[in-house]
Simulated assay, not measured.
Amino acid sequence: MARQSITLTEPNDEWLKSQISTHHEYSNKSELINDLIRQARRADMINQKLALSEISGSVDQSKEEILKEFKEKLK
């Protein structure tokens, strides 16, 4: 994994800390930030797929197939 150093504003740092302390899904900021990036990537892929479907007028995949494709791309 790539190691990064980032600077956070005070409100963003406090928000990250509160998410970690209240949700217990994440043990540290890195886990939470990685999850937020995955969510953003997933949203971006969905938006791209929607834009393509709007251009073409139809989609030939079921929603289950689209979801499976998104999950595979996030690995």
Rank of each mutant, 00 (worst) to 15 (best):
14 E>P: 03
73 K>Y: 04
43 A>I: 07
64 E>T: 06
19 Q>C: 06
39 Q>S: 11
37 I>D: 04
10 E>K: 12
50 L>I: 15
50 L>K: 15
75 K>D: 11
52 L>K: 14
29 K>C: 00
14 E>I: 10
12 N>P: 01
58 S>E: 14
68 K>Q: 09
54 E>S: 12
13 D>H: 13
11 P>N: 08
54 E>L: 15
70 F>I: 09
1 M>T: 12
69 E>R: 06
30 S>I: 05
63 K>D: 05
65 E>V: 04
29 K>R: 15
33 I>R: 00
33 I>D: 00
62 S>A: 04
52 L>F: 14
67 L>H: 10
20 I>A: 01
36 L>F: 11
3 R>D: 06
19 Q>G: 02
45 M>L: 14
47 N>V: 06
46 I>C: 04
52 L>M: 12
18 S>C: 09
40 A>N: 08
11 P>Y: 03
69 E>D: 13
25 E>V: 07
54 E>Q: 15
29 K>F: 03
62 S>K: 01
64 E>R: 07
26 Y>F: 14
7 T>F: 09
10 E>R: 11
49 K>Y: 13
60 D>G: 02
56 S>Y: 14
57 G>M: 01
23 H>W: 10
30 S>T: 14
36 L>D: 05
69 E>L: 06
45 M>T: 00
72 E>F: 04
53 S>Q: 03
6 I>E: 04
26 Y>G: 01
28 N>E: 03
52 L>I: 13
30 S>N: 09
20 I>V: 13
68 K>W: 05
17 K>W: 05
23 H>P: 00
26 Y>L: 01
37 I>G: 01
14 E>A: 15
54 E>D: 15
6 I>L: 11
8 L>E: 03
43 A>C: 12
37 I>C: 07
30 S>W: 06
13 D>N: 06
67 L>V: 06
17 K>Q: 13
53 S>K: 00
30 S>K: 06
49 K>G: 00
37 I>L: 11
6 I>P: 00
71 K>N: 13
62 S>T: 04
29 K>L: 03
69 E>I: 05
